[in-house]
């Protein structure tokens, strides 16, 4: 297999975020997160249940970016049932974040003031309910000081500081396992749950990540590179999960190495 591209490293990092989840609904939103989630199910987390991106739960590894992909439908999951799963708990969602701060507060709602935003985005969507009820990770494809900010304009998904304010009981289901960007992998496994650099992607420097982050990032002295995909993972990504190479459009390779 040829060298892995950045998007393939990112897909593996996303897959890793679901490691240990066992039998729950892995619910990555967006093409790159879906590639990573399906890779986890195809390899080390076979018990994960996943959606078809619509109203069904499927057991097969569906490709992304393919018209009318084959589906092995295991269950019916219209929006109302999705809320049942969210509130019942066995779910790990991966959302996007227009802004994210050092405690993991996420904003997808709007930029500027709530009363009259400078830029209206999606709205709160399900972020408040997701973050207080089940595991929530984030994927940010454009790591910069505009996305990794000191303070989010609006808190859609709640971070560890907000969860701490709510107290142990109210926040007992709050858990943000990972943040994955085009530059590195981050978690909140620090004493006060401030964001930590878990690994940097091959070809990225720690300094580059620090410069692109609008708050003080915790940097362990022994931080290393994100792991490379195995040959089998590369085969699954390239031949089974993303045969049309949707991933390269969403996370372009900085070295512009064409994928094999």
């Amino acid at each position: 297999m040829s060298t892995a591209t950045r998007s393939e490293v990112v897909a593996v990092a996303i897959a890793e975020s679901f490691r240990g989840d066992g039998e729950i609904l892995a619910n990555p939103i967006g093409n790159i997160p879906m590639i990573g989630g399906r890779l986890a199910k195809a390899t080390f987390e076979p018990l994960l249940l996943m959606t078809d991106g619509e109203a069904c739960l499927v057991e097969n590894i569906m490709p992304v970016g393919v018209a009318n992909p084959p589906k092995v439908i295991a269950s019916w999951n219209p929006y109302r049932s999705m809320f049942d799963i969210v509130w019942n708990g066995p779910r790990h969602v991966m959302m996007g974040a227009t802004q994210i701060d050092q405690y993991g507060n996420q904003n997808i709602a709007m930029l500027g003031a709530l009363a009259q935003p400078k830029t209206q985005l999606l709205g709160f969507r399900g972020a408040p309910g997701n973050t207080i009820n089940n595991k929530t990770s984030y994927f940010v494809p454009n790591h910069s000081t505009k996305s990794f900010v000191a303070k989010v304009d609006v808190v859609s998904g709640i971070g560890y500081d907000k969860a701490a304010e709510l107290g142990e009981q109210s926040a007992r289901f709050h858990c943000l396992p990972r943040v994955i960007s085009n530059l590195g992998v981050f978690d909140f496994e620090t004493p006060d749950h401030r964001m930590r650099l878990r690994s940097y992607h091959p070809g990225v420097t720690v300094d580059e990540i620090v410069a692109a982050t609008g708050f003080e990032l915790m940097i362990p002295s022994d931080v290393g590179e994100s792991r490379l995909p195995s040959d089998e993972e590369l085969r699954l990504i390239r031949e089974v999960i993303d045969p049309n190479c949707v991933r390269e459009q969403e996370v372009p390779n900085p070295q512009s190495t064409p994928p094999a």
């Binding site: 709160f124 808190v155 859609s156 709640i158």
Partner: peptide, 13 residues
């Protein structure tokens, strides 16, 4: 009753 919304700016707004 619901837990959804707690701690977010839904409460502030």
């Amino acid at each position: 009753p619901t837990r959804a919304g707690l701690g977010s700016d839904i409460e502030t707004a």
